[in-house]
Nucleic acid binder design. Structure first.
Lengths: 357, 357
DNA sequence: TCGCGGCACTAAACCGGTTCACTAAACCGG
DNA sequence: CCGGTTTAGTGAACCGGTTTAGTGCCGCGA
């Protein structure tokens, strides 16, 4: 019987047709669960996200990533499952996921569940995770992108800049941010010519601002949720300060869009009164007016590679040595950045590595 | 053993702890597939989409819908699987999906696979489907929304308007469009005071335009893919005409955004040279400048209700009579609509049912 | 004519849990 | 001290496929 469906060559054609006809007659549908139990594969992979489905899909980054993953999985006949935390626990979510392998998105290296996930026995691929051991890793050159963004602002003459990080937990001190934020922040500092870690930035939760003064450049560092609302909240925080910075670097486009929206509501002209740089280059980054200057990262390609590597890891079994891939980022200068009002560009924007679109 | 995990009250606490400790010691992980086979439920539901993951997620409508579905499913511990067509066949995809139930999105009532899907035995809920028999249905008042949009344009003085429908297949005649497009088109005609079906619109595929003249209003009807690119393509088509309409109604925001982008590139001022109305009210609709006038529909709420109904249908078994829910739509007037250049608003925009945001 | 290899098909073991029927032990009152 | 009843724990059937070993049959060569 099973032969009729799965090994058509192993049976006489006439018999097979007879069986299939009878099956159709009876409306027989093989049980997908039983089939997969017997085959010992689910033909499903999970995308483990650090927040609820509701929150994580508020960032257009995610659908772009899913599109990339889908490119590979659709072709391979593998289904994609979203795996949000269960009751706040990622390891519980992982344990109860019905998958052959998992793509881990944006887990902090010090995440309490990470060890348990690593030992869960399922194949893993990390995305935007700083954790060198145990599984494949796909990442981007966060530092370079952030650095280009900072250098661009510096070249335009900005000396008072706010940096809006991604808040993992609402009240996490700036210096304890996980890999991705830390790397980008380091890149920003490098781009402004600041020595890493020498500034006086102090703890700062959601909405609280830390200030780092070094030479002529003043950095205010804050963190917020990745959403339009988060961006608006960040701007509100900045408005509460004694004066506004001349530029804002955010670590995601959707946050930047929120800052833009907040600025529009507050009557702040972008880029004349406030320059804004995003990160990701989601499609919506070029739907705004002015179009958003942002650090491009190949989101869909990341998804594709992650899916590809994961499927490879699943198929090759254990004989598979982990690989780390770092994809390039590049600043895309569009309309939301300009020299601050009344200031001359001290250094002309350099062309190297800076694309215009 | 099984008791230790699933019926903690049925075992002495000490014994249960001993078992759990031993399990942890050995690194034992229960097989999710076996568990679900025995339980006869997968605790997964599928979202059946009419196009590839790549294409469907190009429309921000989808992530919004997923957010709504996730609201319910996260809370219920149910995983969401994306189910795109397999080799172009939706029924094949449905047959091989590992789920307890399916949310069917945007299937045409005459879709060749629909009957087979209906007989597949899995629980179903339809979303934006015009098919009264066999399963629950969640929809929106397409006609009213489209009608409001048209009435709004009419009131502003527009008499030459293009309507951009959703192309199911690239070369489908306008009059054979499926439920959603047909309903919205009928709404548009009603909003302009045109009798349904009396105009002279002829067949029109992707990019081809049909014209309906009735009284003073001229409607050009075309259809295109739902994506930014599709919107740009539609505008290109219109530019190929002898003259531009004064307004465009599109059946999705992402298409409207594409039209706006194309207009910007072509130096056409929105709304002065061209008014644009979208449909959906995705978040990005208020990220554009000017912000997009659009027909709001409660996307997330739709997702929530669909998920809720599906779970209900799964749990109640067969004793469940299908329900049809139609959620309201409303026009949200923002910045992309205005009176055509040189024309006076013949009728003042009516307030009833028209919200401003 | 007999033996052997190969083909077509069938029967049974297996995947790894859940669940239910059943046994053994503890507990109770009479 | 004993029978009956609850409680704790165990064994086997079952979920519904896949897969492999095995059986019967046929054709071919010796």
């Amino acid at each position: 019987m099973s032969f009729a469906f799965n090994k058509p060559d192993h049976l006489k054609a006439e018999t097979r047709d007879r069986i299939l006809a009878a099956a159709a007659e009876l409306g027989y549908r093989p049980s997908q669960i039983a089939r997969r139990l017997a085959r010992r594969r689910t033909d499903q992979i999970g995308l483990v996200v650090p927040q609820s489905t509701h929150d994580i899909f508020a960032n257009p980054f995610l659908p772009e990533l899913v599109r990339g993953i889908g490119d590979v999985c659709d072709a391979e006949g593998i289904a994609v499952v979203i795996v949000p935390p269960v009751g706040g626990s990622i390891s519980r979510a992982v344990d109860s996921a019905l998958v052959d392998g998992l793509i881990l998105l944006g887990l902090a290296p010090n995440h309490p569940d990470l060890d348990e996930v690593r030992n869960s026995g399922t194949c893993l691929v990390g995305l935007d995770i700083e954790d060198p051991t145990g599984f494949d890793l796909i990442g981007i050159d966060d530092g370079a992108g952030a650095s280009q963004a900072a250098a661009h602002l510096y070249a335009l003459g900005h000396r008072d800049v706010a940096v809006v990080l991604i808040a993992e937990h609402p009240d996490l001190p700036v210096d304890e941010h996980h890999g991705i934020s830390a790397r980008r922040l380091a890149g920003v500092r490098a781009g402004f010519g600041l020595a890493p870690g020498t500034d006086s930035s102090d703890a700062s939760g959601n909405g609280a601002a830390a200030t780092a003064a070094d030479g002529a450049v003043r950095l205010r560092i804050l963190s917020t949720q990745v959403s339009e609302e988060g961006g608006r909240a960040a701007l509100t925080t900045l408005l509460g300060d004694d004066h506004l910075p001349t530029a804002v670097i955010t670590m995601s486009d959707v946050t930047a869009i929120g800052v833009m929206a907040g600025a529009a509501d507050a009557g702040i002209a972008v880029p004349d009164d406030l320059s804004i740089v995003g990160f990701d280059d989601i499609p919506a980054a070029s739907w705004t007016t002015p179009r958003l200057t942002t650090v491009h990262q190949p989101i869909r390609e990341k998804g594709r590679r992650a899916a590809h590597r994961l499927i490879q890891a699943i198929r090759s079994g254990s004989e598979h040595r982990p690989v780390v891939e770092v994809l390039p980022t590049r600043l895309v200068v569009r309309g939301t950045t300009a020299s601050p009002r009344g200031a001359e560009a001290l250094v002309r924007p350099q062309g190297g590595g800076v694309a215009t679109a």
